[in-house]
Amino acid sequence: MNSIVCIKRVPDTTSATLKIDAENRKLDDGNLVFSINEADNYALEEALLLQEEFGGEITLISVGPKECDDIIRMGLAKGATRGIRITPDNLYKLDPYAIANLIAEQIKELEYDLIFTGCMANDDNFGQLGVTLAGLLNIPHISLAVKIQANEDYAIIDRELEGGLMEQFNIKFPAVITIQTGINEPRYASIFGIKRASKKEIRFVENISAQGIKVHTEKMYLPPPGDTAEIFTGNPEETAEKVYEILKTKGLI
């Protein structure tokens, strides 16, 4: 069973103070730490599990700057077969449709049963690319998969709905599956895997311009300060005292 896994390089912004670059179009990401998007790591693991069960090859594909090679190498170290990194000239203007176009173009020649993506990228929060790709390739898709029982040419998949409910579908290959976090336990790369990965191929697709951009970024800005919490300052002893007072006044203890 051959699969393709789309992986995105995203910054960890949870504890960072963010800045926007002069043109207001892009995050100033100089001091941020980047890694594979959380859901994509689960998607990769799902492909590796299927590879262990059915054999076959895994192709990783990432659209982004040359630093994407780091996440591709990590995936190769875990057991993927090869990587493709696409770096178009107009990288910072792309919308998911344009990214999906680039990916579709590069995988045309490949044989695949399944294409995996994450259900959502933690930077843009669209949750869009995988199902866009399915539309472009005209193959069926399931999004938000939380359980996959695969056979040679079809799978039974549970997809997650709101409130903890799931719905189950039977889907024939080739298909696109977008993976929700928590579906498996992503492995770590072994030292041996890391050594082996340095011999694997990454193909670079450069000097091209992405086509079909439909949505434009007008600007990025820090959200206007809204209502915010009353912040208690002081050392832990002092802030604890204030919290205690609140709980007591409100009859919560």
Binding site: T13, L18, D123, D124, T217, E218, M220, P223
Partner: peptide, 11 residues
């Protein structure tokens, strides 16, 4: 975007 820390205006 970015976990709610930034807003983007698209058109």
């Amino acid at each position: 975007v970015y976990g709610g820390k930034i807003h983007t205006r698209f058109s």
